[in-house]
Design a protein around this nucleic acid. Structure first.
Lengths: 258, 258
DNA sequence: CGTATGGTTGATACCCGTCAACCGGTGTGG
DNA sequence: CCACACCGGTTGACGGGTATCAACCATACG
């Protein structure tokens, strides 16, 4: 874990030693509105207080940190957010990848924020909450963009909720894999071949299952020739079959609840 | 179910035949920013296209309705939102009561909206999406208010997600009751005595359980003298005991994951 | 009075949590 | 260099929590 952090990831075509900015960011397509021309990136650029790198295992922010006035965007890498419940158990609330925002819920200042941890080496943009609000107040397009951002995040969260309500463990896990596949594809990776940034335990915490169950589910999918897996390397062999699992097609007698 | 709809609920002190408005709304404390003086309610008033009443069993909106440009606030009554999954099974995504917004997620236009159904007779304010956006664009305070609203909704949704990840059925149900109690109290009702607007089946759908299980859980809580229940009338006898259930205190051997 | 809906309760099956042992890889210290 | 601990992952045995299915009752409504 002591390898030096990789350099800030730049958009293809940018000189390797360029100063990192929104304009040359490889993830800008994911976190900034697509219709804004490059020369208008100044508004967003000014929100960013600083950019820096995190090593695997470092925290973006800790639980109950006094500074609720920052949010973060992942330029590259993967992270997880989690809470500690009353018994000290970790409960994973989500996984994030490049272009995604962390801390949007803190805008309402209503709920104590959890913690965020880098699952791989990460590059992050730290955004000043205050400057973001100011920009939204002063610029109509920025305000609209922020509203869209919040609303999209709300939809994402609703989707996550749906995943948990879903009945059987295989369904949840299959849906989880499909979404992950889609997320990797959205970022230019192979949709059917990717590397999990998180442990089985973390997947289980996220889905309301256990590491042992995740392991068994993966075995089940391998036996059905839907996926191949070696450690954290996943290959989706049969996308349709996996989708069938996600819809609960593999029910022996009858589906649990749909 | 054929009783005439009750009149639009007015804030205490308002004449009974007053034209309904934000200024005399009994729920204004819940849906409007508290620091805005009554005489500045015009901005909000103008967003409301119309107000009307719904009978129990009527829809606020249906699945995949072409009009995604409206949102709603409940002046009074209770509603549920739900989706139909691939097998035609209803999945309840939430319950709403007076002062709560429905359709905020549609601002992002990212996900097909589900359906919303009145569980009791309701009075609703229909808000024009377009006018809301315009108001947010033109007025800095309205913009900030809308952002706060979205962020709070995000927090609510995250809480709902947490509820589902939680381990055992009794915990989920106990938390559900406690939240409900809190919501009723927030609206001026007795915190320890309320009437459920939804069926056991709907509670089960919402919590990822079945109606039979809900029934048994209620029996369990009654035996523990935590609550008394007659039909949908609930009396919380032992708030601390119920909280203990919510934290998983009633674990025979060991808590599942908390 | 007949029907439909919601609620309760019992018997049974089974999914999945729990506990445990084991293995491979990695980092650490002797 | 090897021994050791530790972590993540796999696999098995076992038990318990819930779903499932069913019958039955109460209530509301035609």
């Amino acid at each position: 874990m002591n390898r030096p952090p990789s350099p800030i990831s730049l958009a293809p075509g940018a000189p390797a030693n360029a100063k990192p900015s929104c304009a040359n960011c490889a993830a800008r397509r994911l976190c900034l509105p697509s219709h804004v021309p490059l020369e208008d990136y100044g508004v967003f650029e000014r929100m960013v207080q600083r950019r820096y790198q995190l090593l695997r295992g470092e925290h973006l922010y800790q639980m109950n940190e006094p500074v609720h006035d920052r949010l973060y965007v992942l330029r590259s890498g993967h992270s997880k957010t989690y809470h500690l419940d009353s018994d000290g158990q970790q409960r994973v609330t989500g996984f994030q990848m490049s272009g995604e925002f962390l801390g949007l819920d803190a805008i309402g200042l209503r709920q104590q924020r959890g913690a965020a941890l880098a699952l791989t080496d990460c590059e992050v943009c730290e955004i000043s909450h205050r400057r973001l609000q100011q920009a939204a107040d002063q610029s109509v397009p920025v305000g609209a963009w922020l509203r869209t951002l919040l609303s999209k995040e709300l939809s994402r969260q609703q989707n996550a909720t749906q995943l948990l309500r879903g009945g059987r463990a295989e369904q949840k896990f299959a849906i989880f894999l499909l979404r992950l596949s889609w997320c990797f594809a959205e970022r230019g990776g192979m949709p059917d071949s990717f590397h999990l940034p998180m442990t089985r335990q973390e997947i289980g915490d996220y889905l309301g299952l256990t590491a042992a169950t995740i392991s068994r589910l993966l075995l089940q999918l391998k036996r059905a020739a839907c996926v191949d897996a070696c450690g954290r390397d996943i290959v989706v062999l049969d996308h349709a079959g996996l989708t069938a699992f996600a819809h609960g097609a593999a029910a022996p007698a009858q589906r649990q609840r749909a």
